[in-house]
Structures are given as C-alpha cells and as structure tokens.
Design a protein around this nucleic acid. Structure first.
Lengths: 119, 119
DNA sequence: TCAATATATGAACATTTATTCATATGTTAT
DNA sequence: ATAACATATGAATAAATGTTCATATATTGA
C-alpha cells in the first residue's frame, strides 16, 4: 500500500489539499468493507424479494418459495445468508419455520433505494 | 398474529391469504431487478470509497487512485460503472477529468447503510 | 419405530464481477 | 508533428456468488 502516494499523477501540489481533506473524512476501511457487505445483501433480486415479502409480516419458507417461484432450496440458502447477517430472524412452530425482518433499518434502506428507482 | 395454522407446503390454502396479500403488494419484478442493480453498485468497497470521497466534492481520477491505493485502471473501470448508472457525472478540464456525485439519493442511501453498520 | 413433511446443507456447476496488464484515445505544450 | 500526460478500454485471469441436485436433519403423527 502506498499511503503517501502523490494525489494527482505528476503534480501533487495541485489537488493535495482536497485530497487530504477527503482522506481525513473517509470512514475507516473496515467500516467501508462492512458497509459493502451490507449493500451486497440487497444486491440480489431473490433476497430483495424475500425482504419485501417479509415487510408484510412473517412467512414460512414454503410461502416464500411459492410466492417467488423459486426452489425451496434456493430460498433456504438465501434465508441463511440473511439470517447470518442479522437481517431476518425466525421462530419455529412444529415443522414450520417462520421468518421475519430482524431490523428496522431494512425498511428504511429499501425505501431509500426504491425512491431512487422511481424517478 | 394469528398463526395458529397448519403447515403450508402441502396445504396451500392455509397461508394462502397472507401469501396473496403479500403478492399483491410486492413491487413488480422489474422494479425489484432494478433495485438489486442499484444496491449492487454500493456493494463493492472500491465503489463505496469512490462515492464517499466524492461526497466532499469533485476529484480527478488520479486523486481517487492515490487516495485509495488502487490502480488508475481499476478506478477508471469502476468510474465507468458508476457513470453508466448515473451515480456520478464528470467534466473535462484539459487532460484532467473531474468526477462528482450525480445524484442526491447517493448521500441518503449511504447514510442509511452507515447508520445500520454503526450499531 | 417408521413414514411423511418442512427445512437445511454440501458439493458441483455456471455466471458474474473486480482487478491487472497492455494498449488506445484524447489533450496540451513544445 | 511529436512528446508527455491523464484517462479509457479490451482481454485475460481469478475470485465470488447463486442455483440446482441430492441428501441430511428435525418434527409430528400413526
């Protein structure tokens, strides 16, 4: 890693001030990495559909699979991803497992994104 | 919630009501697909860093490359992605090309995500 | 116990995606 | 026109990711 690399290719002085200001305000790399991981979760239409479906309330795996015309296995795999990331939670009732949203932020993130789309 | 009901897989009638309600409220597939594409843009730490850097104002490609210790080529490729998606815009000044955010929504989407991370 | 049902999971496969390298394009100054 | 510089881009490579298939686990009821 070249931390003290010249800001601008051959004439460092030029944008040095702006670059240093930006550098000091950038979130730490670790945060950026986590944030990317979060957005990645929303970056798949299967997972998005699951999240949107769960906005209305809890649903079981079969409900979700039927709703979105996707294999039970595919839904299950994606639910695991969402579960591991603490975006959904679940409760068991006999053989059935009901999933629901675990985090209010999900709603606001979805809304912000959709607002942008609907322009 | 009145979930004192039987499993769904083999007896579709059971959660049928809930499923139908959800189905009627789901955004159209095309929207979901577009939304996934949007979030995918935020789902890479290189692109995230570019967007965060541009929050402070316009920067040229070399500024960005230097700032984030990444190849000029890599930055350029990602800038093209962001440009094609209308998240950044650019202006030319001689040999230098300055990039800046093209959309206010970028800020709010980033904020929402970061809020979630910082818990 | 065994069969049936709901869900989870591992492995394989196909697809997407980000980076690198080499080179091309476009701009300016000489 | 040529050299130098800033940026863009195509091809290749490697890594990550989503789905499918087959099978495993867990729960219930006979």
């Amino acid at each position: 890693m070249n931390r003290d690399l010249a800001p601008c290719c051959q004439e460092p002085e030029v944008h040095l001030e702006a670059v240093e200001r930006v550098r000091s305000m950038l979130p730490p790399d670790e945060h950026l990495y986590d944030l990317a991981e979060l957005f990645k979760l929303f970056g798949d239409s299967t997972r998005l559909k699951i999240l949107y479906a769960l906005l209305e309330g809890e649903l079981c795996v079969c409900d979700l699979a039927g709703l979105m015309a996707v294999t039970q296995s595919a839904v299950s795999h994606q639910l695991r991803v969402l579960k591991n990331s603490k975006l959904v939670k679940f409760r068991r009732e006999g053989k059935t497992i009901y999933y629901s949203l675990a985090d209010d932020h999900v709603v606001s993130i979805l809304s912000q994104g959709m607002e942008h789309i609907e322009e």
